[in-house]
Design a protein around this nucleic acid. Structure first.
Length: 311
DNA sequence: TACCAGGAGAGCG
DNA sequence: CGCTCTCATGGT
């Protein structure tokens, strides 16, 4: 007789070639926060969890002992062989630079409802602001989850039932603006069965995208985000303003190409894991901009210094 | 202060 | 189809 593994609130997941910080902070998920000790805290599948990289493992701590950790393995996708994915990328220079800069970046497998709702709220918002809106709706309409002593309270992501029960005005109190109508209507569709989130992964990519796009506030870009980040359609290729700029500059000599055409180009050019390639390009561009920002600040300081000293 | 943000949808020619 | 305008709010 096999003795069942005893429940534990701590676990080490083998995770070589896995950049945890980049993965949790690259704009695919919005609820991870870094504590003072540098560890990442979040809520996955209704459970508080704290993550940190220890050598070639991810150390996970929970508030309550766990017998089964499948919920976390699935979320982090630690079983994915990254190298076999990177090998399918095109060998052009932009792509190789992005891979070099973002080595270890992974795609998570998020819960469909949270992912869909989050990206409805993402429309023409900066990532910092998306994080704030989502934090607000979780604190208001999520359920309190157990946390270890001494930690800030944490909340689950609010269910479609709860959000459908809110008024649009309630939702607007979390500063989501015109997205409130979209979120509310979509929540209603999920509750009354007009949008079957469980059915999305049972059909091919194009059909799945069309299903998601029946929800208000969900067009091609947001649908592709959900297909990629929640359903594991590795070829889904979200084209936002960043990726559009990147593709136009890197592959079209700066000519402005419509997003619909870029999606078709990407589907062909980047291959079966186009979605992974997209995330590498997206994060690569954002890091590059951040670096430029820092240089800009330095030159500004130099200018201020000159003004001060009269040079 | 102005510009812009991981867009979508409607109206127009 | 492709372009433009609006939607709400706050970061930089």
């Amino acid at each position: 007789m096999i003795k069942p593994l005893s429940p534990s609130a701590c676990r080490f997941l083998p995770a070589g070639d896995y950049d945890l910080a980049m993965t949790l902070n690259c704009g695919q998920a919005f609820r991870w926060r870094q504590g003072a000790d540098g560890r990442w805290e979040g809520v996955v599948a209704g459970r508080w969890v704290q993550l940190s990289k220890v050598g070639k493992c991810i150390e996970a701590k929970t508030a309550t002992p766990q017998r089964n950790w499948d919920w976390l393995d699935g979320y982090l996708q630690t079983g994915v062989d990254l190298d076999s994915i990177l090998r399918t990328f095109p060998k052009d220079s932009p792509m190789q630079q992005a891979v070099k800069a973002c080595r270890g970046l992974r795609l998570l497998r998020q819960e469909p409802w949270e992912c869909l709702a989050s990206f409805i709220l993402s429309a023409t918002k900066q990532i910092v602001q998306i994080q704030q809106i989502i934090e607000c709706i979780c604190a208001r309409w999520g359920q309190k989850v157990e946390v270890p002593p001494g930690h800030k309270p944490a909340y689950s992501f609010p269910t479609p039932e709860v959000l459908a029960g809110c008024t649009e005005a309630d939702l607007r109190e979390c500063k989501m603006g015109f997205r409130a109508k979209h979120l509310h209507k979509t929540a209603l569709m999920v509750v009354n069965g007009q949008l079957d989130l469980a059915g999305v992964n049972r059909v091919p990519l194009e059909e799945a995208r069309a299903l998601l796009q029946t929800a208000p506030g969900v067009g091609p870009k947001i649908a592709d985000c959900v297909l990629l980040f929640a359903y594991g359609f590795a070829q889904a290729f979200p084209v936002d303003v960043w990726v559009q700029r990147a593709l136009c500059e890197l592959y079209f000599q700066g000519r402005k190409i419509p997003k619909s055409k870029l999606r078709l180009f990407a589907f062909e050019h980047f291959g079966p894991n186009a979605g992974y390639a997209q995330q590498y390009l997206f994060h690569y561009m954002r890091m590059a901009k951040k670096r430029l920002g820092e240089i800009d600040v330095r030159s500004q300081n130099v200018v201020r210094q000159r003004v001060k000293t009269g040079n």
